[in-house]
Computed example of a mutant assay.
Amino acid sequence: MTVAPRPERFASLDMFRGATIFLMIVVNTAGAGQPFTQLVHAPWIGFTLADLVYPSFLFAVGNAMSFALTRPMTDGVFLRRIFKRAALIFLLGFMMYWYPFVTHAADGSWAIKPFADTRVTGVLQRIALCYLLAGLLARYLSPRWLLVAAVALVLAQWAILAGFSPAGEAFGRYRNAGTLLDLRLIGPEHLYRKDRGFDPEGLLGTLPATANVVAGYLAGVVIQRWGKHTATVGRMVLIGAGLVIGALLLTPVLPIAKKLWTGSFVLLTVGLDMILIGAVIGVVEVKGVRVGRDFLQMLGRNPLAIYLFSELLVVTIELIHVRPGVGLYRWIGETWFQALAPGPLGSLLCALAYTLLCCWFGRALDRRGIILKV
C-alpha cells in the first residue's frame, strides 16, 4: 500500500495568519485617546484597514483547512472532529464574553455576572459556525461546486435582506432582516450591548462570512497546485484585483459594510487577501526573504491561544480600578502613553506594547511546544 505524500507546507500562509492575529490585537486593544482612523472599524457603510482583519482571519482558517482536509479519514471521523471542534470554539467564545464572571455593581461592590445577560454571539462563535459550514461544504463538494456554494451564500443573505426587511431598511442598522432575526431568536439580552440591539456578529451575516472561509480554502487548494512560482503570484494578484474591482462596481446597489457583512464586502476583502497572500508568496517563497519569518510563523502556529490570552488579559487588567470608572489599562494609556505621544500615536504605541506582551506569551508557548488545539 502506498501512502500519498503530504502537501508541501507554505511558510507564507502561516506568516499571513500570524500577521493577521498581530493586527487583530492592535485593533482590539487601542490605548486611551482617539486611535488612527484606519485602526477603527467604519461606523457603518465604508471600509478601513481594521475592517480587513476579521475576514482575513476567516480566510486564513480556510487556508489551513485546505491542508487539513487532505488527510485521509472516514466520514464518521471527519464529522466527529469538525462538530467537536466547532462546538469547543463556540464554547470558548461564549465563556470569553462571560469572563470574568463578576462585575462591578452600582455601589462599587462586586456581583456575579448573570448568565442570562451573557452575549451568545461573537467573534469566536462566528468563526465556529463558519468553520463548520465551510468544512462540510469542502468535504462533500468539488472546488467548482464549492465556488458556486460560496456565491449562493452571499446571494442568499442579499435576498433575505432585500426581501424580508421593512421598506427602506435592508441596509439599515436596527430594522434589517438580520437584526430582526437576532432579536427574535436570541433576544436583546444575549446580543452585543454597545450598539443598542444590533449585533455585528449576528446569525444572518454568518452566511456571507462563510464565503470568506471557502475563498481561503480554494486559495489554499490552487496555491498547492500552482506551486511556489512567480506565475502563482501573478495569478493571485490578478484574481484579487478583479474581485476588488467587482466589489467597487457593486457598491451602488450593494454597499460595502463590514458590520452587515454584505456581498460587496466579501468580494473586497477576499480580493485584498488574494493580493496580500500573493505578495507574501512572492517575497517569502519566491524571493526567499526571511525577515520576520520566525516571528510571524510563531504567531501563526498558535493564533487561538494568543487571541484568547489577549482578550482575557485586558479584561483582567481593567478589573483593577485606579479610580472610579477607570481601569488599569485605560489609566496606563492615559498616564504613560498619552504623556509620551498625545493623540493617535500614543493610542497606537499603547496597543503595540500590549500586542508585544501577547506575542511574548505566544513565544513562551512555542518554546515549550504548546499549541492550543481544539
Rank of each mutant, 00 (worst) to 15 (best):
T355W: 04
Q338I: 06
L352V: 15
A341P: 04
A364D: 03
S310P: 00
V326I: 09
A341C: 07
P303M: 07
E334A: 14
R368C: 10
L313Y: 02
W360H: 09
L352G: 15
L312V: 13
E334Q: 14
P303Y: 00
H321T: 11
G346V: 01
A351I: 02
G369P: 04
S310Q: 09
L304F: 13
L365Y: 04
G292A: 03
S347T: 15
V315Q: 11
D294I: 09
L313G: 00
G346L: 01
L352M: 15
I306E: 03
T316E: 04
L348P: 11
I317K: 00
D294V: 12
G327D: 04
I320W: 13
Y329Q: 03
F309Y: 15
V322R: 05
Y307H: 12
I332Q: 04
R330T: 12
G327S: 09
H321K: 12
L299G: 01
A341I: 01
C358P: 05
I371V: 15
R367L: 12
R368N: 14
V326C: 08
E334P: 04
P324T: 02
F361S: 12
I370Q: 12
R363G: 14
E311H: 03
C350D: 11
H321E: 11
W360D: 02
T355I: 08
G333P: 01
E318R: 07
N302L: 05
A305Y: 05
F361W: 09
C350F: 00
R323T: 13
A353Q: 08
L313D: 05
L349A: 05
T335R: 12
S310M: 05
L348N: 11
G343N: 11
G333S: 02
L328H: 01
I332G: 06
L340Y: 09
L299Y: 07
R323A: 13
Y354H: 10
F337P: 01
L345A: 15
E311R: 08
F337S: 01
L312Q: 10
L365S: 06
G343A: 11
R363T: 07
A305F: 10
W336K: 03
L345N: 04
D294S: 14
F361R: 12
E311P: 00
I332K: 01
